[in-house]
Amino acid sequence: MTEYKLVVVGAGGVGKSALTIQLIQNHFVDEYDPTIEDSYRKQVVIDGETCLLDILDTAGQEEYSAMRDQYMRTGEGFLCVFAINNTKSFEDIHHYREQIKRVKDSEDVPMVLVGNKCDLPSRTVDTKQAQDLARSYGIPFIETSAKTRQGVDDAFYTLVREIRKHKEKMSKDGKKKKKKSKTKCVIM
């Protein structure tokens, strides 16, 4: 069974824990209790493949930012979460993405942009803004509501699919490099 290491990042209060708990335990946590770091595991079937999701729910508070490099190193894919009623959390996505790329030393890291709290009427981040940002990053965008469960499975499952595509691409690139290195030079 394939294991996928997913990391949920975003500013404090955007609903990272609520999304994760909704996926794992099928219930909505409405009281806000700032996370330092929590880890969850769940076995699911995605596109006919049974897999184990190892999900790291991270601290959004700035005082825990020193811990970010460590979990970013171990993560295979990242859910970059903002709240649709919090423009600052949307603007912060850029910083999370840049930090992930720096730590992973790669421009090509599996990510999904997630606009959470889409059940709320007080939207300050337009869907088109988020779609445009995701398009500019070359990553999928999904709106979710941890409260109603809308888009929750889709967000995590899409990230797994992005990781699969990335692994497939990397193995193809690896095979191309191996083929090239088999060419021999004969000096007579």
Results as ranks from 00 to 15, higher is better:
residue 3 E to Y: 13
residue 3 E to V: 11
residue 3 E to H: 14
residue 4 Y to N: 09
residue 4 Y to I: 11
residue 5 K to A: 04
residue 5 K to S: 09
residue 5 K to F: 02
residue 6 L to S: 15
residue 6 L to C: 13
residue 6 L to I: 12
residue 9 V to F: 05
residue 9 V to K: 01
residue 9 V to T: 15
residue 10 G to L: 01
residue 10 G to Q: 08
residue 10 G to D: 02
residue 10 G to A: 09
residue 11 A to P: 07
residue 11 A to R: 12
residue 11 A to Y: 13
residue 11 A to K: 08
residue 12 G to Y: 11
residue 12 G to N: 11
residue 13 G to W: 14
residue 14 V to Q: 08
residue 14 V to L: 09
residue 15 G to T: 02
residue 15 G to S: 14
residue 15 G to I: 02
residue 17 S to T: 01
residue 18 A to V: 12
residue 18 A to N: 15
residue 19 L to I: 11
residue 19 L to R: 03
residue 19 L to N: 14
residue 19 L to F: 11
residue 20 T to M: 01
residue 20 T to D: 02
residue 20 T to K: 00
residue 21 I to M: 04
residue 21 I to W: 02
residue 21 I to P: 00
residue 21 I to F: 02
residue 21 I to Y: 14
residue 22 Q to K: 12
residue 22 Q to R: 09
residue 22 Q to A: 09
residue 22 Q to I: 15
residue 24 I to Y: 15
residue 24 I to C: 02
residue 24 I to K: 12
residue 25 Q to K: 06
residue 25 Q to C: 15
residue 25 Q to D: 15
residue 25 Q to A: 15
residue 25 Q to Y: 14
residue 26 N to I: 03
residue 26 N to M: 07
residue 26 N to E: 14
residue 27 H to P: 01
residue 27 H to D: 15
residue 27 H to E: 13
residue 27 H to I: 15
residue 28 F to L: 01
residue 28 F to I: 01
residue 28 F to Y: 10
residue 29 V to G: 01
residue 30 D to P: 04
residue 31 E to A: 03
residue 32 Y to F: 01
residue 32 Y to D: 01
residue 32 Y to T: 00
residue 34 P to D: 01
residue 34 P to I: 01
residue 35 T to I: 01
residue 35 T to D: 00
residue 35 T to C: 00
residue 35 T to H: 00
residue 35 T to R: 00
residue 35 T to Q: 00
residue 36 I to T: 00
residue 36 I to S: 00
residue 38 D to K: 00
residue 38 D to F: 00
residue 38 D to M: 00
residue 38 D to R: 00
residue 39 S to Y: 02
residue 39 S to K: 10
residue 39 S to E: 04
residue 40 Y to L: 00
residue 40 Y to G: 00
residue 40 Y to M: 00
residue 40 Y to S: 00
residue 40 Y to A: 00
residue 40 Y to K: 00
residue 40 Y to E: 00
residue 41 R to W: 02
residue 41 R to Y: 02
residue 41 R to N: 04
residue 41 R to K: 14
residue 41 R to P: 00
residue 41 R to H: 04
residue 42 K to H: 12
residue 42 K to N: 10
residue 43 Q to N: 11
residue 43 Q to E: 13
residue 43 Q to S: 11
residue 43 Q to W: 04
residue 43 Q to R: 12
residue 43 Q to L: 04
residue 44 V to Q: 14
residue 44 V to L: 15
residue 45 V to N: 13
residue 45 V to C: 08
residue 45 V to S: 11
residue 47 D to E: 10
residue 47 D to N: 09
residue 47 D to Y: 05
residue 48 G to F: 05
residue 49 E to P: 13
residue 50 T to A: 11
residue 50 T to F: 08
residue 51 C to T: 11
residue 51 C to N: 08
residue 52 L to E: 15
residue 52 L to I: 12
residue 52 L to Q: 13
residue 52 L to A: 15
residue 55 I to C: 07
residue 55 I to T: 10
residue 55 I to S: 02
residue 56 L to H: 09
residue 56 L to G: 02
residue 57 D to C: 00
residue 57 D to M: 00
residue 57 D to W: 00
residue 57 D to I: 00
residue 57 D to Q: 00
residue 58 T to S: 09
residue 58 T to K: 01
residue 60 G to D: 01
residue 60 G to L: 00
residue 60 G to V: 00
residue 61 Q to V: 04
residue 61 Q to G: 04
residue 61 Q to H: 11
residue 62 E to W: 02
residue 62 E to C: 03
residue 62 E to R: 03
residue 63 E to D: 04
residue 64 Y to Q: 01
residue 64 Y to K: 00
residue 65 S to Q: 11
residue 65 S to M: 11
residue 65 S to A: 13
residue 65 S to Y: 09
residue 66 A to D: 09
residue 66 A to P: 09
residue 67 M to I: 06
residue 67 M to T: 03
residue 68 R to K: 04
residue 69 D to E: 13
residue 69 D to V: 03
residue 70 Q to K: 13
residue 70 Q to N: 15
residue 70 Q to F: 08
residue 71 Y to C: 14
residue 72 M to V: 02
residue 72 M to R: 11
residue 73 R to T: 12
residue 74 T to W: 08
residue 75 G to Y: 05
residue 75 G to I: 02
residue 76 E to D: 12
residue 76 E to N: 07
residue 76 E to K: 03
residue 78 F to Y: 12
residue 78 F to P: 02
residue 78 F to A: 02
residue 79 L to K: 02
residue 79 L to R: 07
residue 80 C to R: 01
residue 80 C to V: 08
residue 81 V to R: 01
residue 82 F to C: 13
residue 82 F to Q: 05
residue 83 A to T: 11
residue 83 A to G: 11
residue 83 A to L: 03
residue 83 A to S: 11
residue 84 I to M: 13
residue 84 I to N: 12
residue 84 I to T: 13
residue 84 I to E: 15
residue 86 N to Y: 02
residue 86 N to W: 02
residue 87 T to S: 07
residue 88 K to N: 13
residue 88 K to W: 07
residue 93 I to S: 03
residue 96 Y to C: 12
residue 97 R to K: 05
residue 98 E to I: 01
residue 98 E to G: 04
residue 99 Q to A: 15
residue 99 Q to V: 09
residue 99 Q to L: 14
residue 100 I to P: 01
residue 101 K to I: 06
residue 102 R to S: 10
residue 102 R to G: 04
residue 102 R to D: 13
residue 103 V to L: 09
residue 103 V to A: 05
residue 103 V to R: 13
residue 104 K to Q: 11
residue 104 K to M: 14
residue 104 K to C: 14
residue 104 K to H: 13
residue 105 D to F: 14
residue 105 D to S: 09
residue 105 D to Y: 13
residue 106 S to I: 13
residue 107 E to Q: 05
residue 107 E to I: 05
residue 108 D to V: 08
residue 108 D to K: 13
residue 109 V to C: 07
residue 109 V to T: 12
residue 109 V to H: 01
residue 110 P to T: 04
residue 112 V to F: 05
residue 112 V to Y: 12
residue 112 V to D: 02
residue 113 L to G: 03
residue 113 L to A: 09
residue 114 V to G: 01
residue 114 V to Q: 05
residue 114 V to E: 01
residue 114 V to P: 05
residue 115 G to Q: 10
residue 116 N to R: 04
residue 116 N to D: 07
residue 117 K to C: 13
residue 118 C to N: 09
residue 119 D to S: 10
residue 119 D to P: 02
residue 120 L to S: 12
residue 121 P to T: 11
residue 121 P to M: 05
residue 122 S to K: 05
residue 122 S to W: 07
residue 122 S to E: 11
residue 123 R to N: 11
residue 123 R to K: 11
residue 123 R to L: 09
residue 124 T to N: 08
residue 124 T to P: 10
residue 125 V to N: 11
residue 125 V to R: 09
residue 126 D to F: 05
residue 126 D to W: 06
residue 127 T to V: 07
residue 128 K to S: 07
residue 128 K to P: 07
residue 128 K to Y: 06
residue 128 K to N: 07
residue 128 K to G: 07
residue 129 Q to N: 11
residue 130 A to T: 10
residue 131 Q to M: 11
residue 131 Q to C: 06
residue 131 Q to Y: 03
residue 131 Q to D: 07
residue 132 D to M: 06
residue 133 L to G: 09
residue 133 L to N: 15
residue 133 L to H: 15
residue 133 L to C: 09
residue 134 A to F: 10
residue 135 R to L: 12
residue 135 R to K: 15
residue 137 Y to L: 10
residue 138 G to R: 11
residue 138 G to W: 03
residue 138 G to A: 05
residue 139 I to G: 10
residue 140 P to T: 03
residue 141 F to Y: 12
residue 141 F to S: 06
residue 142 I to F: 10
residue 143 E to A: 06
residue 145 S to C: 14
residue 151 G to E: 12
residue 152 V to G: 10
residue 153 D to K: 06
residue 154 D to V: 06
residue 155 A to N: 01
residue 155 A to S: 12
residue 157 Y to A: 07
residue 157 Y to I: 08
residue 157 Y to F: 08
residue 157 Y to L: 07
residue 157 Y to V: 09
residue 157 Y to R: 12
residue 157 Y to T: 08
residue 158 T to Y: 07
residue 158 T to R: 07
residue 159 L to A: 05
residue 159 L to K: 02
residue 159 L to D: 08
residue 160 V to A: 05
residue 162 E to H: 06
residue 162 E to R: 08
residue 164 R to P: 03
residue 166 H to Q: 10
residue 167 K to T: 10
residue 167 K to G: 05
residue 172 K to S: 11
residue 172 K to Q: 06
residue 174 G to L: 08
residue 174 G to F: 11
residue 174 G to C: 07
residue 176 K to C: 10
residue 176 K to R: 05
residue 177 K to C: 12
residue 177 K to T: 13
residue 178 K to H: 13
residue 181 S to E: 05
residue 181 S to L: 09
residue 181 S to H: 03
residue 182 K to V: 04
residue 183 T to K: 12
residue 184 K to G: 14
residue 184 K to D: 14
residue 185 C to P: 12
residue 185 C to W: 04
residue 186 V to H: 15
residue 187 I to P: 15
residue 187 I to C: 14
residue 187 I to S: 14
residue 188 M to V: 05
